[in-house]
Nucleic acid binder design. Structure first.
Length: 452
RNA sequence: GUGGGCGUAGCUCAAUUGGUUAGAGCGCCAGGCUGUGGCCCUGGAGGUUUGCGGGUUCGAGCCCCGUCGCUCACCCCA
């Protein structure tokens, strides 16, 4: 029992029954991003470790203890050592690629999106995995606040397209490094004054990263930090103006948001706008989407001075919200029990795997039928058959389970007559057609305009 | 890394105060219909015998210890 292999902790298999959901999500990613003028980019699953250390920040949890890093020594020459890390996020890779290929030379504004797996060595829990999937969008090369607005709107539209409407958009501005410096000092002073009233955790946060005190969930800490000065009072005129434009842009689009001066994000590279879409029914990991502006990252990684905004959405979390949102509707509709595995509202379940299923009786018919099957497939018609030489009844049951609309039946009688029986499963009607006419007969019934 | 909960057939779960061959539903397979699916009826397979190891006991799925795994939470994040 302990010998059977298992997927590593924090990972999971996406089984065939779940594929329709994922396909729908992937289609939505490409559709919505395309709608907003973003192009897909694909970067490696791993990068040189230094890239993440430089971008995310050396002292963040992710870099300190959550990265899957592999070190290889001397493979390509004497003393040549390279340490590689499975990507714990992809913004750094995007920025790296843009700089490396000088994409700004082609167009000063790069509008890019990505989709794929992310790796973080965290303790798994609800909505948190060691390999999970993100879709993300980045607009690199501009400081325009309208792009911040567009970014948030894109995330909003994407979530809505998936049927997710019960999320709250939290918005804040962290200012530029200058305003943050002033704010940090003020916050530090305030926190140290109230040190005794904070939880032990927050006490240590004061020294490690004061901003984190702001998102402690413990009630008494929240009460205390409510009295702290908000960042908005420390924004410089430039940052204040930028934030005002982002907010008014959202208002004009009718995107409702909630200002949350305690919203602080985990990556060091964020400046000015930060935002998060939060869903209460996700458990403790309530953030489905997180993002913001990073005006200094490109330059820090050796590129030109150029502002950027972006966000990422955790797809497993998005799917979790989709499913909880879909549940009450389904019970109300009185769907058949098999539909409980069907996740999204528009996600098809029990997809037919073939248009035609061939049932044969006896070895001769099986061999002849296999040749016929190959011709049908050659005509571009999805077709399948049984291989266990089961009874006719069993083969029919299988065809029914596979939700195949048409069945071909071939036994010794048909073989001798050079015909095959074509059965319409839905109508329970059957016709006899010559074997050499079977392709056109199938095309006639399949493309007759009947509901697929 | 820390803490709580849980680990019984493929899946979802039962099993009186520890008691003798560990059950059900769904699913799977077959038969009822000797060449025809869905519904129904009948039967069958399936647990290396309850994650693994040890202990207490006349006796452990149930109690104790350890271990592994899952899960939820902290930290942090999508």
């Amino acid at each position: 029992m302990n010998k059977i292999p298992k997927a590593p902790t924090g990972t999971f298999d996406i089984l065939p029954e779940d594929i329709p959901t994922w396909l729908r999500v992937e289609e939505t990613v490409r559709k919505v991003c395309g709608l907003f003028g973003y192009s897909e980019i694909r970067t490696p699953m791993f990068e040189y470790t230094s890239l993440f250390a430089r971008s995310i920040g050396e002292v963040t949890d992710i870099v300190e203890k959550e990265m899957y890093t592999i070190t290889r020594t001397g493979a390509d020459g004497e003393g040549d050592e390279e340490t590689l890390t499975l990507r714990p996020e992809v913004t750094a890779s995007i920025v790296r690629a843009v700089i490396e290929h000088d994409l700004f030379a082609r167009r000063p504004l790069q509008k890019l999106f990505y989709y794929g797996p992310i790796f973080r060595r965290e303790r798994p829990q609800k909505g948190r995995f060691r390999q999970f999937h993100q879709m993300g969008v980045e607009a690199l090369g501009s400081y325009d606040p309208l792009l911040d607005t567009e970014m948030i709107r894109l995330a909003d539209v994407f979530l809505r397209e998936l049927g997710i409407a019960n999320c709250e958009l939290l918005l804040n501005s962290m200012g530029c490094p200058e305003c943050r410096k002033a704010y940090r000092a003020a916050l530090l002073a305030a926190a140290q004054q109230k040190r005794d009233e904070l939880c032990d955790n927050c006490k240590s946060r004061i020294d490690r990263n004061v901003f984190r005190v702001l998102d402690c969930k413990i009630a008494k800490c929240v009460a205390v930090s409510d009295g702290f000065p908000p960042i908005s009072e420390f924004l410089c005129p430039g940052c204040r103006d930028h934030f005002d434009q982002v907010k008014s842009g959202l208002e004009k689009l009718g995107v409702v948001f909630k200002l949350q001066s305690r919203l602080v994000r985990g990556f060091d590279y964020y400046t000015r706008t930060v935002f998060e879409f939060s869903c209460s029914d996700l458990g403790a990991q309530s953030a489905v989407c997180g993002g913001g502006r990073y005006d200094n990252l490109i330059e820090e990684l050796g590129g030109p001075k150029a502002g950027s905004v972006g966000f990422a959405i955790g797809l497993e979390r998005a799917i979790m919200v989709m499913k909880t949102a879909a549940d009450p509707a389904e019970t109300g509709a009185g769907a058949p029990s098999s539909a409980t595995v069907c996740p999204g509202p528009a996600a098809p379940c029990a997809l037919p795997v073939a248009s035609v299923f061939l049932v044969t009786l006896g070895q001769n018919a099986k061999r002849a039928g296999f040749d016929l099957l190959d011709r049908i497939r050659g005509a571009g018609i999805a077709a399948d058959m049984d291989h266990e030489s089961k009874s006719l009844k069993a083969q029919m049951r299988l065809a029914n389970k596979l939700a195949v609309p048409h069945v071909l039946i071939m036994g010794d009688n048909e073989l001798a007559a050079g015909t095959v029986n074509l059965r319409d499963m839905k109508a329970s009607s059957e016709t006899t057609v010559p074997q050499d006419k079977i392709i056109s007969a199938l095309q006639a019934v399949l493309y007759a305009g009947s509901a697929r």
